[in-house]
Nucleic acid binder design. Structure first.
Lengths: 198, 198
DNA sequence: AACGTAGTACTACACTTGGAGTGGTGTCAA
DNA sequence: TTGACACCACTCCAAGTGTAGTACTACGTT
């Protein structure tokens, strides 16, 4: 088993690319070798089997999908109102556009997880942590809305991402910028946070 | 090319099952034969190639996912308020639970469509029609809310379905019935339809 | 009632592909 | 000098496809 971390990362990034381009069906050691432009047989030396590869791809994808701290910090200098939430959602959407491969790979992994308990456990951790982080972030930052708000935003954005990744033409009639603004507007009541109803 | 429609349908249903259980990776003519419990080579006689099979599977899935008219009609006897929308969303979710295979197959098809223009066109039609139907149904039935409401509901429910299909444990802490009610509550303002703001 | 025919079901086989894994050699750096 | 790794080549194995050939069934014909 080889150790070279740079090469391992390169292979994992190649695997993500393959996964996004050719799907789970096309993900073979040989395809990863080719995509990473390394000699045939290399992937065999770095991963014991397909499961191992998928597991490590999951971890790598998680790294790649974590937003850059600095960028978020910059955005968070603005006042805590609905416009800021809109901006955050647009940035999330932008991240998807920029790293389409990672998001597509994640979708492939979700489906693969359907039939691989270990992978499902790993992915559940990733998404649960992601959701919890989202909720905590939202509340700590004192953004308008409560836990349920974040949950519904999470779901709607999920749906939007899936559609944009797989059948973009369906929502093409609705310009993204506006759609996201509308989405937040509907989910987040106009005035007075509903998180404190009493 | 064989014509027997009953057998063709059986093969397509088998293909959906295979797709849901083993994914696109496991979808081979032989696997379909095995799942349908027909002699090996049969699928070869009914579909010219994989693309052909996928195309016909798409059509079949569409059939299977169309809600039963009568069921909807029964539900629609109720007064047009938010509770009714909640009920409709719960029924949508229930349909997913009942025909999990079809929904999973659809997800697989979405990903497959990423790299097959013909399939993408077909799926775009399916989902566009679905969305348009949803909007028209909602407005014609004079349910509370406007087009944007339906759109956001569609997105949020999409997200919920994807999560429930692939990593159900993530949203397990939030009981479905309640989650769906909350979701509608947030997206659909409590009183006075926002579709007519002026 | 016997025959013929068309369409299918079924079986088996031959062919091809593609990927996995591994051993061996070369290379670089500590 | 030694150990880790890159690179290359080769073999083995498994899977799937498509099709030829045979058997069956139903139906129409005379």
């Amino acid at each position: 088993m080889r150790q070279n971390p740079a090469r391992r990362r390169a292979l994992l990034d190649a695997a993500i690319e393959v996964l996004a381009r050719d799907g789970s069906r096309g993900l073979t050691f040989r395809a990863v070798d080719a995509e990473a432009a390394v000699p045939g047989g290399t992937a065999s030396n770095y991963f014991t089997n397909r499961d191992d590869l998928l597991g490590q791809v999951t971890a790598r994808t998680r790294e790649r999908l974590t937003p850059v701290e600095a960028e978020v910090a910059a955005t968070m200098r603005a006042p805590r109102n609905r416009d800021l939430v809109v901006r955050l959602m647009r940035e999330l959407h932008g991240r998807m556009l920029r790293d389409r491969s990672s998001y597509l790979a994640m979708l492939e992994l979700r489906l693969e997880a359907t039939r691989r308990p270990e992978l499902q456990a790993a992915l559940t951790d990733v998404f649960s942590a992601n959701l919890q982080d989202g909720i905590r972030f939202h509340l700590d930052a004192e953004l308008p809305g409560d836990q349920t708000t974040v949950l519904v935003l999470y779901l709607a954005m999920s749906g939007l991402l899936v559609d944009d990744l797989t059948v973009p033409a369906v929502l093409a009639p609705f310009p993204r910028e506006e759609l996201i603004a509308d989405l937040v507007e509907r989910i987040l009541p106009p005035e007075a946070s509903p998180g404190l109803p009493s």
